[in-house]
Design a protein around this nucleic acid. Structure first.
Lengths: 128, 128
DNA sequence: TAAGGTACTGACCTCAGGGTAAGTAACTGT
DNA sequence: ACAGTTACTTACCCTGAGGTCAGTACCTTA
């Protein structure tokens, strides 16, 4: 029942243990841990997706937020947009190399949340 | 320059590729990816901390948000609170087993964000 | 000729996440 | 007697995340 012994190395970063307020990582962290950002990145980790696919998979997202989230992730170089000049329009989104790198870290986190959510939200103590 | 081939298995969860709107994992994800939640969990991953330590380390957090975040994480069974009946008060916070499990997934993510933030926010394309 | 499909944009409004500041309890040291 | 310490709570306010809805462009099919 002991908690954290002392493991889990925070690599070289934050050696003083302080997370500075003005640090750019704060901004990036806000983008990638945003409500919809996580879901979009996870969805794309399974392969390219069209706009309409993403809308369907991130259930509950509005068109406005989908557009906004995708723009942010694109600006951050995590997602790339490929528009085909056809009618009706067809736009495919995919992860960049950098985005794929990130999704590899994000996927286990979301999987863990999925596995533990029910117990935690319903207040099951610790055992199962 | 190819992006995601198809790897990174989303374990058993979300086999249909849809993230349902009412899913409890949405709530949990909101807690653990919240602006301050992440920082608190990371800070505690290095060992027990007092209230005042956490305030200092999560630079910029207000007392109100620290209290609120800690309460949420405690309710979720990720953080445990140990108050000693001394004057002036002394309260230590630590990760539970569950919280430690989570922090092991969170730490690499934050480390990645820290390493890549500067390039990404300043718009360095991809190479370095 | 009118409806439908796709990928958006923009205007408008609401609500909650989060900041600021002051107050509190209870003891200790000067 | 009074300031100092620590861990909070409470009240008030405000910005911005995010929802809703309407509109658009352009071609296709009924």
């Amino acid at each position: 029942m002991e908690t954290a012994p002392h493991a889990a190395p925070l690599p070289q970063a934050f050696t003083d243990g302080v997370f500075p307020a003005g640090c750019p990582s704060r901004t990036l962290l806000d983008h990638i841990t945003s409500k919809w950002g996580v879901l979009i990145l996870i969805a794309l980790s399974e392969g390219d997706q069209r706009w309409s696919d993403l809308r369907r998979r991130a259930e509950g997202i509005s068109e406005k937020m989908l557009a906004q989230t995708l723009k942010t992730l694109e600006r951050d170089g995590l997602v790339s947009r490929n528009a085909q000049p056809v009618i009706p329009p067809r736009v495919d989104y995919s992860l960049t190399a950098r985005g794929y790198e990130l999704s590899a870290l994000l996927v286990p986190l979301v999987a863990w949340a999925f596995d533990n959510a029910e117990d935690i939200i319903n207040g099951v103590p610790q055992g199962k």
